[in-house]
Amino acid sequence: MAPRVTLQTIADRVGVSRMTVSNAFSKPDQLSAALRARILAAADELGYVGPDPAARALAKGTTGAVGIVLTSSLRFAFTDLVATGFLGAIAEQLGPTGLALTLLTSSDSGDIIPARDVAIDGALVYSCDPTSAAVDFLARRKLPLVYVDQDPDPGISSVNVDDRGGARAAARHLVDLGHRKVALLLSGLHGPHGLVDLGQVVIDGHASKERLRGWLDALTPAGIEPLVARQNGTGLEQAKYGARLLLDRADRPTAILCFSDAVAHGVLEVAAELGLRVPEELSVVGFDDNPIAVQVRPALTTVRQDVEAKGRAAAAALTAAIAQVRTGGDSTPQHVVLPTELVIRGSTAPPS
């Protein structure tokens, strides 16, 4: 086995001190350009890639990484179009800071609990159960946190979108078109699924709660009591299951408000299977305006949230919180609420 290359190995090769070699990597402004070039050339020749990251983190008191905690499995981060757009914007915003992004699941596996065990300088908590062990561990570690799509906490920075206002606009659009038989298709992992009573709906998170409130803001004054179905999760097959409960019946609704565009996609597929024409016999409204909204036919009327702006705002809030901790300044939580916009396309029309 080849001998281990250290800072001292390089120092001996160049004829300088070990500290001078260290400065070539960590404090380049303290060396002349020519001397630093000689040191880096020697390091490259000897196969040295740089100081050990763990040792450097210990010396600096920082890891150079931030976490993002997801309620769902990590696969969600790579398969959900809204999540991928959000995460991509965070990564782009963090790029110039040198901070790396680490994905953490809120679940634990035996003795390994990512939120407790992974070295990070701060974390984004993205649409998680606030009572989960992961959120508790992060708080107990006293790390800088930013909540995203969570109920705001006065002492923690947060980034949300106007879910309620967007949902209200979507429901009002259907009411203005003349729809009176309206259904809601919700999603969630906990509580009863299938057709549910409106007064007994179990709400999993902030976005679900706010969107339901927004829909009812417009439906209740119009005297409309919606038919409600709740699917187990957000996948296409789960959405199709919920859609069949609403559509494969004699008194089916003339319009459906969906928790997301992914859910609305399932509704459109079931409508086609049942021979229902959209929008002539059924109007469908989604939420998010993710890429699938313009890929389906007819193109989907939906509520647009700017997931890239949300990602940039979340990353900026977290880096600001980390900077405040490093400088010893007072922590001043930021609370950002981004606007939403109703985008009317071909999936809605007056009831026949």
Rank of each mutant, 00 (worst) to 15 (best):
L104W: 00
A33N: 04
E45Q: 10
R38N: 14
A169K: 10
T131L: 11
A272E: 15
V66P: 00
P351N: 13
L104M: 09
I120V: 15
T105Q: 10
A309S: 13
D162R: 00
P279Y: 10
V161F: 03
A65M: 12
P253I: 04
G205M: 12
R326F: 01
T234W: 15
N232P: 01
R312E: 14
G188C: 05
G98K: 14
R230M: 07
G191R: 02
V82W: 12
G311F: 01
I39F: 00
R56Q: 14
L58H: 08
L245T: 08
S107A: 14
R36Y: 10
G329I: 10
V285C: 05
F86H: 03
S158N: 07
R4L: 14
A299C: 04
T102K: 06
V66K: 02
A42V: 02
I120E: 10
M19S: 15
M19D: 13
A33F: 10
I39C: 08
Q295T: 07
A57Y: 04
A134F: 05
A11P: 01
I90T: 01
R38M: 09
P96R: 05
G194D: 07
R326H: 07
L198E: 07
P154V: 12
G188F: 03
I112Y: 15
G223R: 08
V159N: 09
V267N: 03
Y48G: 09
A207C: 08
L274Y: 02
T254I: 02
A171N: 04
K310V: 11
D153S: 08
L74C: 04
S109C: 07
G275P: 00
Q200W: 00
R164W: 04
Q30L: 15
P221A: 15
D306V: 05
L227K: 08
R18G: 05
L212E: 02
P333M: 10
R297Q: 15
A24V: 06
F287M: 04
V303S: 11
D248P: 02
T131Q: 12
H265C: 10
R75D: 13
T319I: 12
E281A: 13
R56G: 12
L177H: 05
F78P: 00
A42K: 00
A349Q: 04
V21W: 10
